[in-house]
Design a binder for these strands. Sequence first.
DNA 1: TTGTTATTGAAAACCATTTCCATTAATAAG
DNA 2: CTTATTAATGGAAATGGTTTTCAATAACAA
Lengths: 157, 157
Amino acid sequence: MPRGNCQGQGWWHGKFRGCGYRLTTGREAILDLLSKSEGHLSAEDIYIKVHPRYPNVGLTTIYRTLDVLSNLGMVYKFDFGDGRARYELAEGPRGAHHHHHLVCTGCNRVIDYADFIDEEIELLQQTEKGLGKKYNFRINNHVIQFYGLCDKCNGKK
Amino acid sequence: MPRGNCQGQGWWHGKFRGCGYRLTTGREAILDLLSKSEGHLSAEDIYIKVHPRYPNVGLTTIYRTLDVLSNLGMVYKFDFGDGRARYELAEGPRGAHHHHHLVCTGCNRVIDYADFIDEEIELLQQTEKGLGKKYNFRINNHVIQFYGLCDKCNGKK
DNA sequence: TTGTTATTGAAAACCATTTCCATTAATAAG
DNA sequence: CTTATTAATGGAAATGGTTTTCAATAACAA
Ligand SMILES: [Mn+2]
Ligand SMILES: [Mn+2]
Ligand SMILES: [Zn+2]
Ligand SMILES: [Zn+2]
């Protein structure tokens, strides 16, 4: 039962099984929620949404599942500086929904943006290639975040 | 005694006083250590280095000072995914030492890199301008991190 | 020197996340 | 459809980085 990198195709039923993971109610519920939710959910956010419909899915399982999904590359884990991890469905490493983040240090609002993404991606690929060679580093992910104040937080005091 | 953004010039004696902060032994010790240390120190790292010479500087003060320095923009606070915040002297918002990070998810090693920085900075400035206008966002910082496996962690298993 | 008050250290609280462990259930074998 | 194996689970407890509390201290303006 292989457990390592299983960057296959298709949707998660196959992906999960192919990696030797069992397909449980909790995992399905969490993936289901993630796939139909917008935004950047914390483990507790997910718990609060999943628990009413599946009362026998505990917070511990949320954490464990998110960890598995993150290792499989199906979910991205972010730190936006508000003291808890936040998660977002990946939908393919370089897939259609790839975007970066604008984080307000005033109110913790996070804006997804995809403007300039093409130029950013191109530069990133160059950089990845160069750095990978120079430092003998196998890059498989990146994070770009801009920090500042959103319009609402700009005008206060 | 003003407290807000004090992005003045010069070194920290003046900067601190100009922002209404008192210049204390602890703060000087912490800044002193940061300025002569390489790498990405956690609060505890700093405590361990500072405490022997200044036994009356507690961990709480380390945290509080790092928070002040971070708010003043004199120190950058990072999350590299190892469960603790790490800090690094800024030396000017776009100063000579600006660099980005390569983070090994295997052993948590962090490599500073400044290759390709010129192209990155140019793109970032364009992006900042565009995003700032589009989302009415006052950007004053950014984080770029590449995640992957370093040479040592590549060859294991 | 003196008064004001920002800063401090130690201990306790906080709280997101992890660990423990006995129980349950997904899966494969028969 | 059994049955056996063992991954997965959840609730409680532990963990550990960071923050809060509060009385004592010290920086600095006057
Ligand atoms: Mn996003
Ligand atoms: Mn660095
Ligand atoms: Zn805001
Ligand atoms: Zn490594």
